[in-house]
Amino acid sequence: MEPKMLEPTAQDNLLVSITRRDWLLQEKQQLQKEIEALQARMSVLDAKDQQLRREIEEQEWVLPWQGCDLVGGLSLGELQEVSKTLQDTLALAEQIPIRAEPPETIRRYW
Rank of each mutant, 00 (worst) to 15 (best):
M1A: 07
P3L: 12
P3E: 11
K4S: 11
K4T: 09
M5L: 13
L6I: 14
P8S: 11
T9F: 03
A10N: 10
D12W: 05
D12K: 07
D12R: 06
N13I: 08
N13Y: 04
L14D: 09
V16K: 15
V16Q: 14
V16C: 05
V16T: 13
S17N: 14
S17E: 15
R20Y: 11
R20S: 13
R21I: 09
D22S: 15
D22R: 15
W23L: 15
L25W: 06
Q26G: 11
E27G: 08
K28P: 01
L31I: 05
L31G: 06
A37N: 14
L38N: 12
Q39M: 06
A40R: 13
A40F: 12
A40W: 07
R41G: 10
R41H: 11
S43W: 07
D46E: 11
D46K: 13
A47M: 05
L52S: 02
E55Q: 11
I56P: 00
I56M: 06
E57Q: 07
E58D: 05
E58A: 03
Q59F: 04
Q59T: 04
E60N: 05
W61M: 07
L63W: 03
P64F: 01
W65D: 02
W65R: 08
Q66T: 04
G67A: 05
D69M: 08
D69L: 06
L70G: 03
L70D: 08
V71E: 02
G72E: 03
G72Q: 06
S75I: 02
E78Q: 11
L79M: 12
V82L: 13
K84R: 14
T85R: 09
L86D: 03
L86S: 02
T89C: 10
L90F: 11
A91H: 09
L92K: 14
L92G: 07
E94S: 04
I96S: 01
A100Y: 11
A100D: 13
E101P: 00
P102G: 00
P102C: 02
P103D: 14
P103I: 01
E104Y: 02
T105R: 10
I106E: 03
I106G: 00
R107S: 01
R108Q: 09
Y109C: 00
W110H: 05
